[in-house]
């Protein structure tokens, strides 16, 4: 063991005989960002194809990637899938937008005002326990099978994690930062914008992440139960017709859309703020 290590370290940088070989090219390829991202998916799809090909499960219940790709292509060509995706994303955007406005405002109010916190904390814990889907029956009675119902449920799911994360973020601001700001002459208003808001950003960003994730799930659940369109509706409708392939398409679409939300919206925002300031380590990077 020890002999081997000394032998290895004493040899000064062994010449790369395999410099142009396939192995070296593969190593270089693996470092490309796109390849790093897609490679794990390629492995999963390959395993999936093998399992489907071997006929482990009956093809009526479990279809292979080729069949799913075929269904995907047809529904895109017919314009059904794009329209459904636009519907789902619009609902999510409206619900999340309203949820963000309400959640951020309430989060800062409850986090910074002692009276507001004492009053609302028991209520927060109580209502947080009533899951999003548990609201659907009463929401349907109130608003019918409408966009309003879907929005209400999404707003509900987004608001609570957001409030709780913002309050936690505000509580985590070191006392000495607040002391430093006030001893340098910051007024209450200035304190809010210069210290509390940026200081709460790590909490806010994790709240947005959790909230959006919950929002997605609530959206699909709402579409399954009260939907007339959307990705969730498509999946449930396909199930009713015994069309497993389209159920798989829906699942894949959900995953891809979430991945894109993360890669195109959440991750860049975090990279420019909380990561740049050294407040948090990059998540999964």
């Amino acid at each position: 063991m020890s002999v081997q290590t000394t032998a290895k370290t004493s040899r000064p940088d062994p010449p790369r005989r395999t410099g142009t070989s396939a192995a070296a090219r593969w190593r270089a390829l693996r470092r490309r960002p796109l390849v790093t991202t897609l490679f794990p998916f390629a492995v999963v799809i390959a395993v999936w194809a093998v399992v489907a090909e071997l006929g482990v499960f009956p093809s009526a219940f479990f279809v292979g990637p080729a069949t799913v790709a075929d269904s995907l292509l047809t529904s895109v060509q017919r314009g059904i899938l794009p329209a459904y995706i636009v519907d789902s994303l619009t609902r999510l955007a409206v619900g999340t937008g309203v949820g963000l406005l309400v959640g951020v405002a309430l989060g800062f109010l409850i986090g910074l005002n002692r009276h507001a916190r004492r009053f609302s904390w028991p209520l927060l814990l109580f209502f947080q326990a009533i899951g999003d889907i548990a609201w659907l029956p009463i929401v349907i009675i109130w608003f019918g099978f409408s966009l309003t119902s879907v929005t209400v449920v999404i707003v509900y799911t987004v608001v609570f994690p957001l409030i709780i994360s913002i309050v936690a973020g505000l509580d985590a601001i070191p006392t000495n930062l607040l002391r430093a700001a006030s001893s340098l002459g910051a007024s209450r208003w200035r304190m809010f914008w210069e210290v509390y808001v940026p200081g709460a950003l790590p909490g806010l960003s994790s709240g947005v992440r959790t909230g959006l994730g919950y929002g997605w799930r609530a959206l699909i659940a709402a579409e399954i139960i009260i939907g007339t369109s959307g990705v969730g509706f498509m999946m449930f409708d396909a199930r009713r017709q015994g069309d497993v392939s389209h159920v798989f398409v829906g699942m894949a679409v959900l995953g891809v859309l979430w991945y894109m939300t993360d890669a195109l919206v959440l991750a860049p925002l975090e990279k420019e703020t909380v990561e740049r300031w050294g407040l948090v380590e990059g998540i999964g990077r």
Binding site: P174, R179, S183
Partner: peptide, 26 residues
């Protein structure tokens, strides 16, 4: 607290979201 008494803290208490220049100009 007030700016007539400047405080230097053991843990520095610099604002992490501000550059050195912005911290000093705060």
């Amino acid at each position: 607290p007030g700016p007539d008494r400047g405080v230097v803290f053991q843990d520095f208490a610099l604002f992490p979201w501000k550059t050195v220049l912005a911290n000093v100009a705060f």
